[in-house]
Design a protein around this nucleic acid. Structure first.
Length: 433
DNA sequence: TCTGGGGTCCTAGGACCC
DNA sequence: TCTGGGGTCCTAGGACCC
């Protein structure tokens, strides 16, 4: 048995904890560069504002509908997330943190009334943090996700599902025909794993609702679609195919990418951007004690603009697996040199670290003690991380001799509200309710 | 004028081997 | 004149997730 605990409109809810005046008001949180909406309050959803909708399309709503817009503050959301996860963990013996605002809880061995227990955890998260959440319970992860969808929809859109399922929905106590009614009322595209493409293909062959999908023959699902769809069908029928990932495994790939506030053509600013992305990625790499084998660099124009398009990527092997910022930056820059073509309005670039292995493992691969030079580098990187963590990002960063006085053309455009955030829990209204 | 930043897994097809 | 079949590994690209 699984539960899924999911913060409602998480980023907006985090903002509201510190700015109670945003309560009851349509609010959206904007991405980096204030490019598009990445979180919406219920009031903003009611205005018809879509996830990912560009800011320029909705800005007139500030005047016409009292829409309030805030720039994203990911440091804040990360801290709030840690706190929510530790409270959610009280629901059962195991936990998989699935995203910044969601975690699956394994409920095996938990006795008593699951729904009552979930309601208690929900109200604790609300009282101790001020963040509302919904909890779905089901015999598989896909059903727990579905239950969560029902819990959220029943609360936000009266009439979509029976009101008794609002906030906490426990499917484990329902008879099959009751579950089937809920699936019947659900578009196939709402099911976890069925995105826009698959949804379209499924509807084309008459699979329109989640109930239709559950009734599909698994072998047919595999033959006509894929093993992913087959697994989803089985999960909807209550056969668990996806297990809880509770040993938070290190990432297999680390990415740092950003859209530019303004298009970039010149090489210099790209060198500066790629150096920064590579440094940031190397930092994340060391934080999880891994070494990388390959570095991928990409640059691209904006697919939204009617201009000559250019999109290239290249993967370059590091001389040997490492977590050394200097080696990773210079490898990334050699990749950039290989793919750069002048004359394009580049909108986005990024660096990915691939072929990650545990740092200890990487040393074993050498078959000998790391030479002194490598140990010195490791100590240098440790010092770099320590200083930057103590005094703030970019206190020490890698310079590139090639840049000189590069124009700062790629700099992000000024955000509406520069988040000035420190982790000060004493400011949290802890016992609000 | 203005369209995020991360991740995962699966599949198809080519290269290569015997 | 006739030109196999099966396995593995790798990579690129697609689809999905939040």
């Amino acid at each position: 048995m699984f539960a899924l605990v999911d913060g409602n409109n998480f980023y907006v809810s985090c903002e509201r904890v510190f700015r109670p005046a945003l309560e009851g008001v349509p609010v959206v949180v904007l991405s980096n560069n204030d490019g598009c909406a990445i979180a919406r309050s219920n009031e903003a959803k009611a205005l018809g504002i879509q996830m990912g909708q560009p800011w320029h399309e909705i800005r007139h709503r500030e005047a016409s509908d009292g829409l309030v817009v805030v720039s994203a503050n990911f440091a804040l959301y990360g801290d709030m997330s840690d706190r929510m996860m530790s409270l959610a963990a009280g629901l059962g013996p195991s936990q998989e943190i699935y995203s910044i605002d969601e975690s699956f809880i394994g409920l095996d061995g938990v006795r008593g009334d699951l729904k009552a227990r979930a309601l208690a955890v929900r109200s604790r998260i609300l009282r101790w943090m001020g963040v509302p959440c919904c909890i779905g319970i089901g015999s598989t992860k896909t059903l727990a996700k579905f239950a969560n969808h029902v819990a959220k929809s029943a609360e936000r859109k009266p009439g979509s599902y029976p009101l008794q399922h609002a906030q906490v929905c426990d499917l484990s106590t329902l008879a099959w025909h009751q579950l089937e009614e809920l699936l019947e009322a659900t578009d196939v595209g709402e099911i976890w794993g069925i995105g826009p493409r698959l949804g379209k293909q499924l509807r084309k062959v008459g699979v329109a609702t989640a109930a239709d999908l559950a009734r599909l023959d698994p072998a047919t699902a595999r033959a006509r679609f894929s093993v992913v769809v087959e697994r989803t069908v089985r999960e909807l029928r209550g056969m668990a195919c996806i297990s809880l990932d509770d040993l938070s495994q290190p990432r297999q790939q680390i990415t740092c990418t950003r859209s530019f506030g303004r298009p970039v053509q010149a090489y210099g600013p790209l060198v500066e951007a790629i150096s920064e992305f590579a440094s940031r990625a190397a930092e994340k790499l060391r934080a999880q004690s891994s070494h990388a084998g390959h570095v991928l660099v990409f640059i691209r124009t904006s697919p939204f603009r009617k201009e000559p398009q250019y999109s290239r990527s290249v993967t370059v092997a590091l001389p040997r697996p490492c977590a050394d910022t200097l080696a990773i930056v210079s490898t990334a820059l050699s990749g950039l040199q290989a793919i750069y073509q002048p004359g394009y309005q580049l909108a986005k670039a990024g660096v990915m670290l691939m072929d990650l292995v545990a740092a200890s493992h990487a040393q074993l691969d050498l078959g000998l003690e790391a030479p002194d030079g490598h140990r010195d580098k490791a100590r240098l990187m440790q010092a770099l991380d320590a200083v930057n963590s103590r005094w703030g990002r970019d206190t020490i960063k890698v310079g590139s001799a090639k840049i000189g006085s590069a124009p700062r053309g790629w700099t992000m455009k000024q955000q509406r509200r520069t988040p000035a955030y420190t982790t000060d829990w004493s400011q949290m209204p802890i016992a609000r309710a």
